[in-house]
């Protein structure tokens, strides 16, 4: 019997070209039994949200190193709302200044994972919010 699998989209919005972190996280989630959909670099918020819809993911994980986290998070959340989607959780990883974390959470980001976060913490958080 195949049980339900958690599905997570890992995407990198914007122009910075460093995807090592995103790949390491994706790999870690895979090893925790999660199905990871990986879109690669330079995704627009529109592409990310459309992908999340077609793939019916439980979680979107954005990897952002460019400093443009506020814009991308707001835009993704806006598009999700436009499509009437309320059951996808948005989490963010990358280089986010500590003072911006509460701002991101206040606009609807569920959690922010900075450099040095153990993968197990991310996995635990995802399992908790998805509860399949």
């Amino acid at each position: 019997m195949v049980e339900e699998r958690i599905r997570v989209l890992i995407a990198k919005p914007g122009l910075d070209g460093h995807d090592r972190g995103a790949k390491v996280v994706a790999r870690g989630l895979r090893d925790a039994g999660i199905e990871v959909i990986y879109t690669g670099l330079r995704q627009t918020p529109e592409q990310i949200v459309q992908t999340a819809i077609q793939e019916d993911v439980d979680v979107i994980g954005l990897s952002i190193l460019s400093g443009a986290h506020e814009y991308y998070c707001r835009r993704v959340l806006e598009l999700l709302k436009e499509k009437g989607i309320s059951d996808i959780v948005l989490i963010v990883g990358g280089v986010i200044p500590p003072e911006d974390v509460s701002m991101l959470k206040s606009i609807g980001v569920s959690e922010v994972f900075g450099p040095g976060t153990p993968i197990s913490k991310v996995v635990e958080f995802i399992r908790q919010v998805v509860k399949k």
């Binding site: 790999r27 895979r30 090893d31 925790a32 039994g33 879109t39 995704q43 592409q47």
Partner: peptide
């Protein structure tokens, strides 16, 4: 492929098709 050990998977095919995403 799904992992025979964890059951997880790294699904990367659509990476090459993302221009059609929207």
């Amino acid at each position: 492929p799904s992992s025979p050990f964890s059951g997880g998977a790294f699904l990367g095919d659509r990476l090459r098709m993302q221009r059609h995403a929207t």
